[in-house]
Write a protein that binds this DNA or RNA. Structure first.
Lengths: 164, 164
DNA sequence: TAGAGTTAGTTCAAGCGACAACTTTCGCCG
DNA sequence: CGGCGAAAGTTGTCGCTTGAACTAACTCTA
């Protein structure tokens, strides 16, 4: 109830941002589903695990890194376990907690699907941007994220993982 | 299979963009659901109709403007009709086609919910950006959209509608 | 050490989107 | 003008996300 409408430049930016917000996730999901048989969210889970020490993370940490919720992650991890891509095991000190670790098969999956996904990311996003725009995008997204998640609980995971 | 990994700056931008792609839509949806009792997609439909001549659009056009699909739109319009916010009627010349028009109640709904939504958009996005960044974002999103939808079928609708 | 409150994670029901069929209508070509 | 393919929408099924309980385990305090 404070400010009024958006200014014309803001309006233009907003319309385009909304379009990107709807089409880009759909495009990424489609690529991964077609080429790797998994969703973008599942890919993110594997990518993050592949980059972390011991390829192991607790459920709550993993939920934070993926900008997700515990119920959602719980379901997804269940599916990944069924497919043998990750495994669950108890945390020594705390019997409430659960660790999730990438399996060898999960690592293989990342190695095989990451390059194709990175190509898609290039094609849809970075091929359209100059180096200056990449930095601008970085700053802009950082500013918005600061508003959306001031606590910073959700740390920079990574998407197109090296999966070395 | 062409380029290799992302460069460090690209990687940083990517991680942040992914975070924004997941958190921003969720935040907008939450605000609208809480304050207006509808989803962001439903809001978009009403907003676009409110800005178009006669507050009327054909299903296919509306699907394009909302970056959506016909089946999805069909379901949403059905719900909006049940709530009395829009109405469907035949297109004179073509008996296959269907027009959708905003009702008086739908207009009222926009008038009452748009200001709050615009405030949210400001809070999450534009308050975090300088005027220069707004223009940068506009250019960046335009470039990405060009890659995602080269045909440009999906025209600039509008999100935070005046609902005059 | 018993009890209250909190945290970690799972499960269940409800709702929405995606995809594929299906119906109806139109345009076109012989 | 008969028929064939394309276009416009709708409907049905399946899978996933969400939000609300619910269980189990930990911590702090009296």
């Amino acid at each position: 109830m404070e400010g009024n409408w958006l200014s014309p430049p803001e309006r233009a930016a907003w319309v385009r941002l909304i379009g990107m917000l709807e089409l880009l996730p759909a495009a990424l999901d489609h690529q991964l589903r077609r080429d790797a048989g998994m969703t973008h969210f599942e890919y993110s889970v594997l990518a993050i695990l592949s980059e972390v020490p011991e390829q192991t993370l607790r459920m709550t940490e993993l939920a934070g890194f993926t900008n997700s919720t515990l119920p959602r992650l719980s379901n997804v991890v269940k599916r990944l376990v069924d497919r043998g891509l990750v495994e669950r095991f108890a945390v020594p000190g705390d019997r409430r907690a659960t660790n999730v670790r990438l399996t060898a098969a999960g690592h293989e999956k990342m190695v095989s699907s990451a390059p194709g996904h990175v190509d898609a990311v290039r094609e849809y996003v970075f091929d359209a941007l100059t180096p200056e725009q990449v930095d601008q995008l970085s700053e802009i997204a950082a500013g918005v994220l600061e508003r959306l998640d001031p606590t910073g609980t959700r740390r920079p995971p990574i998407d197109p993982a090296p999966a070395s």
